[in-house]
Design a protein around this nucleic acid. Sequence first.
DNA 1: CTAGGGTTAG
Length: 764
Amino acid sequence: MASSFPSVAVTPSATLKLQPHFRKYPPTSYFPTDKSQSISLQKSHRLTHLDPSYLDYREALSSAKEEGLEDLELSFYVPLLQECLHKGSISDTKIVHGHVVKTGTHQDIFVMSFLVNVYAKCGNMENARKVFDKMPRRDDIAWSTLLVGYVQNSQPKHAIRGFQEMLYAGSYPSNFTLAIALNACTSLQSLKLGDQFHAYIIKYNIGYDASIGNALCSLYSKFRKLKLALNAFRRIKEKNVISWTSAISACGDNGEAAKGLRLFVEMLSEDIQPNEFTLTTVLSQCCEIQYLELGSQVHSLCAKFGYDSDIRFRNSMLYLYLKCGCIGEAQILFNGMDYHSLVTWNAMIAGHAQMMEHTKDNLSACQNGIEALNVFSKLNRSGMKPDLFTFSSVLSVCSRLVALEQGEQVHAQAIKTGFLSDVVVSSSLINMYNKCGSVERASKAFLEMSTRTLISWTSMIAGFAQHGRYQQALQLFEDMKLAGVRPNAVTFVCVLSAYSQAGMVSEALDYFEIMQKEYKIKPVMDHYTCLVDMFVWLGQLEEAFNFIKKMDFEPTESIWSNLIYGCQSQGNLEIGYHAAEQLLSLKPKDSETYMLLSNMYLSAGQYEYVSRVKKIMEEENIRKLNDWSWISIKDRVYSFKPNDKAQPQSSLLYKSLEDLVSKAKNLGYEMLESVEISEEEEDEKTTSPTIYHSEKLAITFGLEKLPYSSPIRVVKSTLMCRDCHNFIKYVSTLTGREIVVKDSRRLHKFVNGQCSCGDFGCFL
DNA sequence: CTAGGGTTAG
């Protein structure tokens, strides 16, 4: 994928010049001595580049209050309002506003427009509107300022209404006003209205300039109409940097990062100089496709243009490094930053969370998660306050680590800071409790939500399904439809998996049809996987195999491994062998596959084949997967290897485990021997004891260290073996504890001798 | 004024 791009020249062509992005106004403009200068100020409406350090505005403000306002020049308000804007202070703005009214300056439409702008930026649209209504007349700038205020304060309906008022009042919209109206349509999520504005633009023959083209580009992009968005961009005759940046980000927002990057290359070849916005957009798209090489070249470009100290750029780069798995580079960049913004911290946490997601190996995934939690506690110690982004990322890390105690602490912090009211944070919370095995607390959190999105509903349905509570999952699905929320492909994965695990074949197949016909959702691999698994668990291997053959997709690894597992319990060696062959062509030399195959022959009593498989494994030098288990207690995560005698307290721990085993045996537990690939070559045994498997050690450790009756939660790097699964059921009865084990495939929750997977898991 | 960095479900 990466190689298809033309490489970007690190040195920009000589014609590119630095933009003067900081312009100083002559100080005389602050205190115009006559009316003409005041008018010139009106023209230079954009005063955002004024150097605020020029005057002590606060002093000016208080002296203005003391002296009364008669002495003040009209344009003295400009720096005062500038300062209000800078500080975002409503109370200061009200003082200035009072002065404006007292001195009769409210007749001046420039000062009044500015006041509208300041109130809007402070988030107070009521006052902005009051000021606007008091104006003697309104020009295009006044209207635009008001409309922009509405859009930026998430009141797009008011913006559209304002646009209509403007037409009724007899003002003609400028291109700029139309661009704002289009943005209002974007945030209103109304493509229909946007099309009407587009028609208006065409009907009244309004010149198609960059501001309209850019707005149309982002409008269509938000509605996932990339083609229309790019058309809007192409039609702009004089494309500016913003046009290019909008078009590039439109590609990225529509999952066409590669196309966006090609546009970037085109932009460079047209000698348009990117600014820091463009470069950060490009970096985020490098992130999407993990194109680190281009990212590094962008880094060099940034250095060339002097943007590389920009905090936003650095945050993007940091995230890119993490997404590409370059922890070392990310660490160096992070340490070298003189200032960490909240986004820096969030990028660090989310980056590690992303690495967890994309790391196949559960061992390194957990290490990433532990590091993410470390970063989070450093953030808390730094005195900076986490926000909703932090909370949702950290909660997702806790859920993947099955770290309930940390998750509870984050929950408490989210309540205290008020961020739990955010729908994303509370959805993450639901997911955390579900993944940590507490479906009760997840549903409590779900009920307490004031608004629920599709993701909130889907998370909860998934939670019920994962805990084997199929009826509740399906009931919630009905409730969701009653609430008017339209299910998507992911929701149907959960629903199908609930039906299939409940063994409700005809219902599952019906919903598979309904999904396609009624909801127009194209089935993806995961939907087929649910149905295939259903046939496997029901022991209908022929049906499963036929279903696989009918699919439009190449079967995935998990389909084949589940099939082998089904073949083991049914003794169908023929299909099992075929599945193993297929699986090995997808994952050559995969030890798990050989183990499943060997277990299948072992169950069928075909010992000759068992030793044949073992021989192949030796010849091919197939190594056992790293088998680790973790348990998190308070703020520490403890890890265990099988037969690990390195732990300082290991002899005590082994003793406790052996006690537990003999107690379980009294209840009827029989230890199974499983096929092991020995790590020492000289070991000749085909079977080996399963007693010291890592999850058994981790659970024993948890039983000792955690308070009485506290649930035990363990994460395991590989598939659990059948013996451990069986043993843990006995332990849950013996100790009366709830035990949750997340293995490389799924979640198992053991309560009172029963597992939530209903023994339809896949075991080694 | 329009554009940019970080979040949730299988």
